[in-house]
Structures are given as structure tokens and as C-alpha cells.
């Protein structure tokens, strides 16, 4: 008989595989990325532009179908300094993760800020996308390496406070 008191824990590995399909709106966004474009969708009711689009306006609960191309530059609305290493992120610590409101969009999305010391990133800072070489583009957000400062004057808080 095994000594039952010796069993302290068991390991039960779980692995699940999925065939993910993104749906209509996200597919158009991903295909746009493959062509070097950032495609959003505009709500027919409140006119807000969502990037990336999920196919619905969460405010109005209606389908968003109008395609809108937005700029690959925008404004940092908020950010955080990351000091904790992560398994799948190969970056020197600390680094800055930011919410960026692209010009023409109404919701910010999440991206990394590089080519700028981490302690100089600020709310209202203007940034632009740094794309990988076109030959490497695919239907993925990884086409954009990161965002970097453009050097334009900062945007006053009042102009993006509704988008935090």
C-alpha cells in the first residue's frame, strides 16, 4: 500500500483546442491590417467609430456596418508602466502599455509605446504606428510593432477626457 499521506498534490494537465473564427466585423478589421489599414465601423445611431469593431455599438445595441478607415496615429489617453516580466512579452523592463485614441476613432485601444523613455510617456502625447516591413504583413495586429512619439504638441485633456 502506498503511503497516502505522501500525496500532497496532483497535476492534471488540461489542453483544449479551438478553431476560432472572428466573425464578420473582426474579419474585415484583420483583412484591413493585412493591407496596412486600420478599419473601424461607425454606429448608424450615435455615429461613434469603433476600432477594432465587434459588429455592434455597445451603447446603442445596433449593428455597425459602415466601414471607416482611421489614421495610424493618435493620442495616448492613459497608460501604465509595466515592471513585471511576462512569459510571452520579450521587452526590456520597464516598458509602457498605453490606451491610444486613433484619429477618427471613438474608443481607444491597447498598444505598446517604444522609442521613448518610459518615464516620458504622458496623457495627451501624440503617437504613430511603427509598421513591420510590408512583406511581413498578415491579418494580425502584429503588423504594428509598437507606437512611438510623433513630436507634435500634446492634446489638451479636455479633448480626450470623454474617451478614457
Amino acid at each position: 500500500m502506498a503511503d497516502e499521506s505522501a500525496i500532497q498534490s496532483i497535476v492534471t494537465p488540461v489542453r483544449m483546442e479551438y478553431t476560432f473564427t472572428p466573425g464578420a466585423a473582426s474579419q474585415r478589421f484583420l483583412l484591413g491590417l493585412a493591407a496596412g489599414k486600420l478599419m473601424g465601423q461607425r454606429c448608424p445611431e450615435c455615429r461613434k467609430v469603433y476600432v477594432p469593431p465587434r459588429g455592434a455599438c455597445p451603447r446603442c445595441g445596433v449593428a455597425t456596418r459602415d466601414e471607416v478607415e482611421v489614421a495610424d496615429r493618435g493620442t495616448v489617453t492613459t497608460f501604465c508602466i509595466v515592471r513585471v516580466p511576462s512569459e510571452n512579452i520579450d521587452l526590456e523592463l520597464p516598458y509602457t502599455a498605453a490606451q491610444i485614441l486613433l484619429d477618427g476613432a471613438d474608443i481607444p485601444f491597447f498598444a505598446l509605446i517604444q522609442e521613448c523613455p518610459w518615464d516620458q510617456v504622458r496623457m495627451g502625447m501624440r503617437v504613430e504606428a511603427v509598421w513591420r516591413p510590408e512583406a511581413e504583413w498578415g491579418p494580425t495586429f502584429e503588423n504594428i510593432r509598437h507606437f512611438r512619439p510623433t513630436g507634435e504638441p500634446d492634446v489638451p485633456f479636455e479633448r480626450f477626457q470623454q474617451h478614457l
Binding site: 473564427t21 466573425g23 464578420a24 466585423a25 459588429g55 455592434a56 445595441g61 445596433v62 449593428a63
Partner: peptide, 26 residues
């Protein structure tokens, strides 16, 4: 297999139909 639409895209028409049939404003 619903490959064309994501969960939200699948839900919207169904929710809209149920709410409209109910006669209650959302």
C-alpha cells in the same frame, strides 16, 4: 457551424426580435 458571425453578431438580431415582439421598449 456558425463561421460567418461572432457571438455578438449572432445575438443582435435575436435580441432585437425578442424585444420587438415583447412590445416593451428596450
Amino acid at each position: 457551424s456558425e463561421r460567418r458571425r461572432n457571438e455578438v453578431e449572432m445575438l443582435m438580431p435575436v435580441i432585437a426580435e425578442a424585444v420587438e415582439k415583447s412590445g416593451l421598449p428596450r
